[in-house]
Amino acid sequence: MSIILETRDLAKSFGAVTAAANINVTIHEGEIVGVIGSNGAGKTTFINMVTGYLKPSQGSILFRGKEMVGLSPRQVTREGICRSFQVAQLFPELSVLENMLIACSMLGGNLFNPFSPLKTKANLQAAQAALDDYLIGEYAHAPVSTLPQGVRKLLDIAMAMVGRPSLLLLDEPTSGVAIEEKFGLMDTVIKAVINSGAASLFVEHDMEIVSRYATRVIAFYDGHIIADAHTTEALNHPQVREYIIGSELHREQAEGVRYAAN
């Protein structure tokens, strides 16, 4: 399969902090890659660099052979890379349907037609259908600020998918979502991604979810990639077990205690 994204020697430092160094990642068309790593390992920084939100200190990002470094997020979006956010980035005072309508009009490129209404019957139907695809159609008329995290995360992803990206970057799609809803959410999202034919990279802390949905895993540790391999192989990698899975277990236990205490 052909390569869709290739980063070479990507690095980013914030003052004395090295958030990323030596990042060489290759992603193929239609591939689904899991990204793991403890907090502060540089996962979000990587996504921010690929989507033009952060300018790398060095290195290059080739998307279908074209250099992405120096492009703004909106230009990267137009090239076909879309993303979701660790904390869902929505229009909180507007309804779910309006959020989707705006996403459709902006990504669909009919923004600069000042005299056709946003809420035409056709637009409303298309937006409703897009929501239904992600099983959040029932919330269409609720203001986003009243929604539970799981719905916000789905809306965030659904809005990104409107751009029909060929690469979708998901930053912790299940964080903040209740445990019993995580698999349902991932089922919905991954199904939509596979149907669209896009390649996808998702950041995830839960190893069960990683092994269920990813065919390949990239492990970040302290700004570096310490493993990049087939899922089972990567999850059994000694350093991954020691530095990442070990600490995730600690985290889960700590959370478990907290939940029990509540």
Partner: peptide, 15 residues
Amino acid sequence: EAIRENEIRVEYLGV
């Protein structure tokens, strides 16, 4: 309204 609510999202919607 979208800009008022969230500029980052607008930027990531390609605008």
